[in-house]
Each structure stands twice: as structure tokens, then as C-alpha cells.
Amino acid sequence: MSLQPFFLWMQEHAFSAYILNETWFSPIVQVMHLIALAVFAGAILVVDLRLLGVGLTRVPLSKVAEDAMPWMVWGLVALLITGWPSVMSTAMKQYYSPFFWWKMELLVLGLIFAFTVRRRMARMDEATLGPVWPKAAGMFSIAVWTGVAVGARLIGLLS
């Protein structure tokens, strides 16, 4: 099944026309997307660094993860809300951009990992986890989210 009709529908939607017509709509949404990104990245990184055995090591991993969770979730919600208008108003550009699909695939992978493996790992006893798995998880998480950010930036630059 091709998603092209859906992207075409988004592109031709009245909301897309409204966004493209309002001079300040896109810039405002984009700057809010970046602030949400900083919050989200910080919440992700603070736990990933802890998984790597650096950063906030004086507090149990489960505590660091618990503290970071609301910032991660609300950062993500803000990213989705502010990312949506950009996808709608430039839907056909996104559809034909390899970087958009690169970003979306890594995004799904990153979210699944964050809410399954990483989350469960953060709740486990650090002694039973051993030294290797948390480090592998931290590095994998950083790699995937870096990939999302790189793909995202390249949509605008190289598409």
C-alpha cells in the first residue's frame, strides 16, 4: 500500500494552505519544535549517560530514569504537535525525501527501544544487569537519536 494518497491529501488540505499563507506560522512552529527538541534530547541524554556509567552516578539508575521520564514524554508530545504542521504543509516534499523516511524509521525504532528495553532496563537492579548491557543500551540510544536529528536536519537541506 502506498502512502502517497495520504500525503497528497495532507498537502491539499485547507490547513496546509493556511500554514503556507501565514508568514509567521511556520517559523513559530519550527522554533517551538527546536525548544522541544532540546528538552527531549536532554531527558534522553541524562539517562543514556547514566547507562554509560557517567553523569548522575550517585543516584540509582531507576531514580534518574524516573526523574527524566516526564521531560521525555512532554518533550515528545511537544515535538509531535509542532512537527505535524511542518509535515502537512510540505507533505509532498517530505514524501519524496529519503531523509524524511530515514528520520521516521529511526524515530519509531528509538521510541520502541525507549519504552521497552531501555525502560525495563532502567527499572532493573544494576548489579544483575552487569556492566555491559547498560552501556550497549546507552550507546544504541544515543546513536539512534543522533540519526533521527541528522535525518531531520537533512530534510530541509538536501531535499
Binding site: 532540546a38 534530547a41 536529528a149
Partner: peptide, 13 residues
């Protein structure tokens, strides 16, 4: 942007 994520993200934390 990657540098910004790392810097601003951890500053905000």
C-alpha cells in the same frame, strides 16, 4: 544541531 541538543539539553536538565 547535534551540539545544540547535547549542550542545551543538558543545560536544561
Amino acid at each position: 544541531v547535534i551540539g545544540m541538543c547535547m549542550f542545551a539539553g543538558l543545560i536544561m536538565m
